[in-house]
Design a protein around this nucleic acid. Structure first.
Length: 458
RNA sequence: GGUCCGGUGGCAGAGUGGUGAUGCAGCGGACUGCAAAUCCGCGAAUGUGGGUUCGAUUCCCGCCCGGACCUCCA
């Protein structure tokens, strides 16, 4: 167990590559920005991991500080969107609206709280153009063949976030370097857009923004030149965050952009990398069809956010069993309400979001609650509320669903079989229902039932 | 090839310069018609070779293995 003060947040900062004390710029108002979805397809488990990490961080910050503003953008102008809309034969707006609605529904199903501000890129092109114009004016960017490019040579801090050698970055991509770039590492701020694709008038002609500028423009608009935390997956560190940082620091040289950078590690599925380009990604919807939402949520919290997580069905079943244990703790104290968040839970959370340690603390609370400790049950409830877990009534967790009448009838039939000591028949009924995902359990007070993974051995 | 991260019981997964959490699985016992749940108890791990140290799983170096990034990615 960590021994630091429970209310002092220690957080890993990617730029410094170490765990540091989190010091907000304004302790009265913590501000953070996360890179949100590009809305062209259903969200997958990797997206969920990033958004859940943000959710846990924001929930914790709200406990520690009086005011938190969490901004998560929506990328609704992008080449992948254009391609997808054309492929489906629908308008870009139809695609982005529908995808965003799906995204919201999926995250809500997982208990991920919405951000305070969710700006769309297409609503902030004016801010992007203004920022690009400023970069051009100050000599940090140049126009070439209708494109506007950021000059990485010009920014001495380039490479600092991702820990890369600036000289090597000047060379840029290994494969192709557009001929109009001064240095291979220069990246696009603005590019020309043909009539059939989304475009906006600009000082450089009709065009659309490059990938990175929207986050710089929108974080500035809503959080200012300097804010506390910027987050996302580790795969965004380079080039996306490195470029955002370069743009923002050059456009606003008196600001510090993001003070702390929080990045979650990638997720594997059965040991394999999951990515959109490989096409092997599991969507949030796929998994919701296979397991209770809280089990999915807990599964993701069983691994620290900075460690690679290998998603598997076995893990899902284990997560479900852990929740069984927690709900048994609550079931032992009907009507228990959340009390104060136990220090064991808070100190684990403030220790760089050590969720595995939080779960260990919750197991101790559940053990105590089952043994009769009402205060522990109350603490367990509070821990669950903090993590976005244990939101159900125990009876709903164990016995929710629609076939309760049929199950009760089977139990009655089985009790009769037991009464006449026809144990073969009693066992057959129990086995049949277990295969259907219902475990029948005989106790001193009669027979109860609960749901288990279908075909399971629980 | 370059940069970075990591290797902990059967599996999952934390922490720590000095008795190595927690969960799942397993084993023994209580309870049960038998199970389940619950309770009591048990076994089980720091990739490898060096170095620093009174002491290393932890710090340093080499090696082996895995992963990430290197301009689509959460």
């Amino acid at each position: 167990m960590s021994s630091h003060s429970p209310a002092r947040l220690r957080l890993h900062d990617s730029r410094q590559r170490r765990i540091v004390d989190f010091q907000p710029i304004d302790p009265g108002h913590v501000r953070l920005y996360y890179c949100g979805p590009t809305v062209y397809d259903l969200a997958h488990l990797g997206n969920l991991r990033a958004n859940l990490t943000a959710d846990l961080l924001v929930r914790l910050l709200r406990v520690l500080y009086p005011r938190v503003t969490y901004v998560r953008n929506v990328t609704d102008v992008d080449d992948k969107i254009n391609a997808r809309a054309a492929e489906l034969g629908i308008s870009i707006g139809t695609l982005t609206d529908a995808t965003l609605a799906d995204f919201h529904a999926d995250l809500a199903a997982l208990g991920v709280l919405p951000p305070d501000i969710e700006p769309c890129a297409t609503a902030h092109v004016g801010e992007m153009i203004a920022m690009i114009a400023r970069l051009v004016e100050d000599g940090h960017a140049y126009e070439a063949e209708g494109h506007v490019l950021f000059s990485v040579r010009d920014f001495p801090g380039y490479g600092q976030l991702s820990g890369r050698d600036p000289e090597a970055l000047l060379a840029g991509a290994r494969v192709e370097v557009a001929p109009y770039k001064r240095d291979g590492g220069d990246f696009v701020l603005w590019k020309p857009s043909p009539a059939e694709l989304p475009g906006w008038d600009s000082p450089w002609g009709r065009g659309r923004p490059g990938w990175h500028i929207e986050c710089s423009a929108m974080s500035h608009r809503y959080l200012g030149e300097s804010f506390d935390i910027h987050g996302g997956g580790t795969d965004l560190i380079f080039p996306h965050h490195e470029n955002e940082r370069a743009q923002s620091l050059c456009a606003h040289p008196h600001g510090e952009f993001a003070r702390f950078w929080v990045h979650n590690a990638m997720l594997l599925v059965d040991g394999e990398k999951m990515s959109k380009s490989l096409g092997n990604f599991l969507t949030i919807r796929d998994i919701l069809a296979r397991a209770p939402a809280e089990a999915i949520r807990l599964l993701l919290m069983r691994t620290h956010y900075r460690s690679v997580l290998d998603f598997s069905d076995a893990g899902l079943i284990e997560a479900r069993r852990e929740l069984d244990r927690f709900y048994r703790g609550l079931e032992a104290h009907p009507g228990v309400v959340a009390g104060a968040l136990p220090d064991s839970v808070l100190s684990a959370l403030t220790d760089d979001l050590n969720t595995p340690a939080v779960l260990a603390a919750m197991h101790r609370l559940a053990d105590a609650a089952i043994a009769g400790d009402a205060r522990a049950a109350s603490g367990l409830r509070a821990a669950g509320a903090q993590l976005g877990l244990l939101a159900l009534d125990p009876s709903e967790w164990f016995r929710g669903g629609e076939d309760a009448v049929e199950i009760e009838a089977a139990i009655t039939a089985r009790l009769e079989a037991r009464r006449v000591r026809d144990f073969a028949r009693a066992d057959a009924i129990r086995a049949e229902w277990l295969a259907r995902g219902v475990a029948m359990e005989d106790g001193p007070a009669g027979t109860t039932w609960r749901r288990v993974p279908a075909g399971g051995t629980a």
